[in-house]
Amino acid sequence: MDVIYFAWVRERIGLPRETVDTNAATVADLVDELRAREPRYALAFADMSAIRVALDQELTGLDASLEGVREVAFFPPMTGG
């Protein structure tokens, strides 16, 4: 699936998007897998209260299922307007 990062999450991980092969069942499982990969992921996902997630461009929670999902996005709380 496509995993996309925005704002300081993108800066900490060091890339805007990547394709990830995963069997993770939920967003939280995917975060655990990414954290285990490299320190930059562990740094980006150190405080999950500062992370928002969207599945196929809809805001959701960390316990959401990844079944059938094509695009996962991680980003900080939004600051529009």
């Binding site: 900080p76 939004m78 529009g80 307007g81």
Partner: peptide, 12 residues
């Protein structure tokens, strides 16, 4: 305005 400030995916 209240909604887009914290629910539209923009980052400053």
């Amino acid at each position: 305005m209240d909604y887009l400030k914290s629910r539209a995916p923009f980052w400053k």
